[in-house]
């Protein structure tokens, strides 16, 4: 059983873009629906943060990879998503079109950029500690676990000062790596509830078809119906991503082959780690 896994926002942008006709179509769609010119990585009008650019870029790259896999005749029996990978995952399931997926990612990103402007947030990637000590460090510093990717790989989110302090404490407590990354908003934390109504308004603008392929969500590991999708799109930005649980649930469901549909191979590496502990 093949599973297509859609990763979240990439941390960096690779300037060497694909040059095939499929990518040209997706790039044109991205420019039309979001204003981002992927070739120059600039906006045709207005100005948005690097994070918004990376969100649109990540969706575009996933959509391109999806097209290539489908053109090769590779079809998933189940689809899974991590964080903002939900938008191209909805395309893979036939629930929304490519243009809507790009636009939703852009509008959600623009909303976060605008509503949290003037406040400093950050992400902290901590590798090597287990969940319990990291939860204590997070609570002490007023930040939250945003991604529970494996037993030893976590992303924290919250105010920058708290993230920097938490990463320092994590390193002192024996983390193999603790790195701070910029972000526009406290993604996947309860702090996002502040903009919940804005996000609800955005996602209610779109129509969602019933997924034609089961789509497993990363919070409770259930499959999404069309009726649940708009609420999930808001909820998933306010709650942590539980990747290890999701991967194990996919395995239990019968998935045997996993194809990562996007930039880099983070999910594949998480899976490798989880398998090594099984």
């Amino acid at each position: 059983m093949i599973c297509f896994m859609f990763p979240g926002q990439p941390l960096t942008h690779d300037a060497s873009l694909p040059a095939d006709a499929d990518f040209m179509e997706i790039a044109a769609l991205a420019k039309d629906r979001t204003g981002l010119d992927l070739a120059s990585f600039t906006w045709s009008s207005g100005a948005h943060t690097e994070q918004v650019r990376l969100q649109v870029y990540g969706v575009a790259m996933s959509l391109h990879r999806l097209r290539l896999l489908l053109a090769e005749g590779i079809r998933p029996a189940v689809v899974a998503e991590h964080s903002m990978g939900i938008y191209p995952a909805l395309v893979a399931c036939g629930s929304v079109g490519e243009g809507d997926a790009l636009e939703m990612a852009f509008r959600a990103g623009e909303c976060m950029e605008r509503r949290f402007r003037g406040r400093e947030y950050a992400l902290g990637c901590v590798i090597g500690l287990t969940e319990q000590p990291l939860a204590a460090i997070s609570a002490t510093n007023g930040v939250y676990p945003a991604n529970v990717n494996t037993s030893r790989h976590f992303l924290l989110a919250g105010p920058r000062a708290g993230i920097e302090a938490a990463c320092g404490e994590a390193a002192a407590a024996g983390a193999f790596s603790a790195s701070v990354f910029p972000c526009d908003a406290p993604l996947h934390t309860p702090l996002m509830a502040e903009i919940g109504p804005d996000l609800e308004a955005i996602f209610s603008d779109y129509g969602y078809r019933e997924p034609c392929i089961p789509l497993m969500e990363h919070i409770g590991q259930t499959t999404l119906s069309a009726a649940r999708i708009p609420a999930f799109l808001v909820e998933e930005l306010c709650r942590p991503v539980y990747w290890e649980r999701t991967y194990r649930a996919l395995r239990t469901l019968g998935a045997t082959t996993f194809r990562e549909v996007g930039v880099a191979a983070a999910l594949t590496k998480f899976n490798r780690w989880i398998d090594s502990e099984t």
Binding site: I127, R152, F176, S177, K269, F270
Partner: peptide
């Protein structure tokens, strides 16, 4: 390789 790989190599 990246930091995820590094931890795998450590183990």
């Amino acid at each position: 390789l990246d930091s995820i790989d590094a931890l795998q190599l450590v183990v």
